[in-house]
Amino acid sequence: MSKMRESVIMKIHYGTALAAVALVAVHILMRLTLNFAESLEYENVIANYQFIPYAGMLEIILILLSIHGFNGLRVILLELKQGKVYEKAVSYGCVAAMVGLIAYGSRTILMVNMGMV
């Protein structure tokens, strides 16, 4: 991971942002099918997660923005302070946090679909 070229990482950073613009637009349009209060009702939330194409899209948005956001955080932290140990900690810490967040978000989607809620 730390061997990855910075240009490859930044291509992923820009790519995930562009893909997120498209998918978040769909996400927002889907939200407009109900009014705000309704879309937060328990049954509607569960129904959304159980609608596999939509849940799949949410999962993809989760992955895209976790990659984008935590790489962005890595960039901010690298520019804030420098040092070999610190920079290694930042790089691995951001990857770990990214994996953690994706796992946590995926868990919600999976639990709904496995009938655990």
Binding site: R5, E6, S7, I9, M10, V75, L78, E79, Q82, E87
Partner: peptide, 9 residues
């Protein structure tokens, strides 16, 4: 220039 403190900063 393609490294962590290179052009992308």
């Amino acid at each position: 220039i393609d490294e962590s403190h290179g052009i992308w900063r």
